[in-house]
């Protein structure tokens, strides 16, 4: 009798094991489904020639230089906005562009093939801008 009880206890131990395995599986599944490690909050994405050069948090003030064979752009993140502080491109359209902070807003420097755009986790109010 006592042995049977013992056996029951063992099997309930296995049940507990199974329980934990299921929880571990659940966690694993969540990890798999959220396949990308998401950076929370708005961020600035810089691309060169269509390739991502880097991503930077919008809420952390920062100034950095992006240089390529085409030239240099100094990008400044300040007070939750990003703008091109200076550039050695011929038209300076990127420098004249107003600071951006809304989702999908983009500053383009055509001569340097550089873009600076905002990526937001908040729902965007537009999917594209016709201009």
């Amino acid at each position: 009798m006592s042995l049977l009880q013992n056996s029951d206890m063992k099997s309930s131990k296995n049940d507990i094991l199974l329980f934990f395995v299921m929880i571990a599986l659940g966690v694993l599944l969540i990890l798999i489904f959220s396949n990308e490690t998401k950076v929370m909050g708005d961020r600035v994405r810089v691309t060169l020639n269509g390739n991502v050069y880097g991503e930077y948090p919008l809420n952390k003030d920062d100034t950095f230089t992006v240089s390529s064979e085409h030239g240099e752009n100094v990008i400044c993140i300040k007070d939750g906005e990003v703008y091109v502080e200076s550039a050695d491109c011929p038209d300076k359209i990127c420098v004249k562009h107003a600071p951006v902070h809304y989702d999908k807003e983009t500053i383009v420097c055509l001569p340097h093939r550089l873009t600076v755009s905002i990526i937001s986790d908040k729902e965007a109010d537009a999917d594209a801008v016709s201009e």
Binding site: E105, A128, V129, S130, E131
Partner: peptide, 30 residues
């Protein structure tokens, strides 16, 4: 498809809604 501000919206978004295309203000680029 956004070719320098020339937009084409094909079908619906993955959530089934229409694509929202903003028209830029000629007075203020923001």
């Amino acid at each position: 498809v956004n070719l320098g501000g020339n937009v084409y919206a094909l079908g619906h978004k993955s959530d089934g809604n229409n694509w929202k295309v903003a028209i830029k203000s000629p007075f203020d680029s923001e």
